[in-house]
């Protein structure tokens, strides 16, 4: 006991100091350790979540990029096909138009030829009629007689046979 007095040990002080320590532990725990550790944990958690999210987003972006490239390729291929078809159709149409045009042209030429030939034939037969008339008149005058109708018919028939040969 003498040692205890020599060291100045006093139960009241001892208990006071224990209480002091517990108060300090309580105050620091309540105002510093607990909130700060919670804050740090929350922050760690949030950063981890954010990093995960960023990774996910990056993956999604990559996926989207792949899809985009794939789509572009498809569109390219379709465009090429479409262009090809269009070209073919255009060529077809061109060929058709050309063919029809040449056909029509041939038809027109044919018709023209026909009408020219018809005109010539008509003119020729008219000329034949008139020439025959003239010849009959002249012949009547030269012979100073009138032909009976039977004669006329006969002469006209023979003339009709000969005139074309004469005209040629």
């Amino acid at each position: 006991m003498e040692l205890l007095t020599k060291l100045g040990i006093q139960w009241g002080l001892l208990i006071a100091q224990i209480v002091n320590f517990l108060i300090v532990a309580g105050v620091l725990g309540f105002f510093i350790y607990k909130p700060i550790l919670k804050l740090l944990d929350d922050r760690t958690e949030r950063i981890r979540a954010a990093a995960e999210k960023a990774k996910k987003l990056e993956e999604q972006a990559k996926e989207m990029e792949a899809i985009r490239v794939e789509k572009l390729k498809k569109i390219d291929a379709e465009c090429g096909k479409l262009l090809e078809t269009a070209k073919k159709q255009a060529e077809q149409v061109q060929a058709d138009i050309l063919e029809r045009a040449s056909k029509e042209a041939a038809l027109l030429i044919e018709r023209g030829k026909q009408s020219v030939a018809e005109e010539r034939d008509r003119a020729l037969s008219e000329l034949q009629g008139r020439i025959a008339g003239v010849i009959v008149g002249l012949s009547e005058k030269i012979l100073a007689r009138e032909f009976s109708s039977a004669d006329q018919t006969r002469i006209l028939e023979s003339l009709k046979k000969d005139i074309p040969a004469l005209l040629k």
């Binding site: 100045g8 002080l13 001892l14 100091q17 320590f21």
Partner: peptide, 12 residues
């Protein structure tokens, strides 16, 4: 520098 104080914390 007081045994009361160090003893208190040692007991805790």
């Amino acid at each position: 520098a007081d045994v009361n104080m160090t003893l208190a914390i040692a007991i805790i």
